[in-house]
Amino acid sequence: MTLLSAHGKVSPSIFLMNNFLRKQNFWFVFTPYFWLVLFFFIPLALIFKISISVSEWGMPPYRDLLDFSDGNIKINSTLSNYAFIFSDPFYLRSYLNSLSLAFTSTLICLLIGYPIAFYVAKSKESTRNLLLILLIIPFWTSFLLRVYAWKVILQGSGIINAILMKFGIISEPLSMLYNHYTVVLGVVYTYLPFMILPLYGYLVKFDLNLIDASNDLGARPLRTFIRVILPLSLPGIIAGSMLVFIPVVGEFVIPELLGGSDKLYFGKIIWQEFFVNRDWPIASALAMSGIIILVLPIIVFQLMFAKYNFKNE
């Protein structure tokens, strides 16, 4: 037992202090640990358990994994739920639709968002703060209402149709709602701030002298952009793309409000299997394979990227 502190000085209260520190630290670790295991990890484990259970009529609508009824243990486990969703092109297509929706809209958000973030970051400080506030306002406004706004605008009798008809471009209202283009539009619109804000965060720290230096050395603007600006804003691009891509993969609300029946998405299928068909094992198997196919690659990528960043620092 030592009463010496790390710096070699004897402190009479050190033992008491360490004891106290240990107690405080224990609660600081234990409380969130306990909460997350109970309400995050166990529910996920439960999804896994139900996904390998046999479905049956009743409440809950699946058979218990372990059956003790005959005096010996019988395991009612099956992979048939997974086999079913992977054999039916309907489910596979919905995964692909969600992935392509997430990919397309992330790309469009990046293309629209990058110039905005770049020019806001490059403005004078007084204008910059004002523009930043203007960027944050839509971010704070309810997500649901921003999606709903497009439903209002794109109606047959909506403002876009009215303008087009007034100028004689079309003679009768176009039906612009309820297809997968509207879904992309809605997604790009609602997720654009998630792309712009992290990009802005990296671009604003960016030293403008580097651009001048590159110009002085004879690089043309495009080359300066590709060789200097783009690599330095890469962390922002990746952060913004993650913030858009990940939630869009599971998006349910936008396809439900703006989408039609031409394309089905992953989020909506889970919703339907659970609430409409009441098939818990299938819904769980869908969620589980969603985690494995869509979420795990992202976690692995993030860990790799964190390492890469760490090495570069």
Binding site: L44, I246, I270, S284, L294
Partner: peptide, 19 residues
């Protein structure tokens, strides 16, 4: 535990909590 809720789609979180 403390970071993966960030990347978990809402629909999966909702389903797992309900179950």
């Amino acid at each position: 535990l403390s970071s993966s809720p960030l990347v978990m789609p809402e629909i999966i979180l909702g389903l797992s909590l309900l179950l």
